[in-house]
Amino acid sequence: MIWQIELIILVLVVLFGIGALAVKDLLSAAILFGAYSFMLCLLWAIMGAVDVAFTEASVGAGISTVLFVAAVLRTTRRTDD
């Protein structure tokens, strides 16, 4: 557990989370949410939860993003907040 890497990833997690909520384009929000999930996956691999990291990499960063993109394409891409 190298604390420098962990600190960088913790900061990136918060930044990606804020970005996913703040950005106006919903497709960008979906992709940023995928990046957020992937950062969490790295965080859990660092903290020794390998099974959880594996699940997050396949579920959170993989399928969730696909479902989000599919839903965005079936609804609308623009939003005001």
């Binding site: 390998v50 099974d51 990291a53 594996f54 699940t55 396949s58 579920v59 993989g62 399928i63 696909v66």
Partner: peptide, 17 residues
């Protein structure tokens, strides 16, 4: 090793997707 039904099932589903 890390893995199991949940992860494997999701990866298999991802291949179909």
């Amino acid at each position: 090793s890390p893995g199991g039904g949940f992860q494997g099932g999701v990866i298999f589903g991802a291949s179909v997707v």
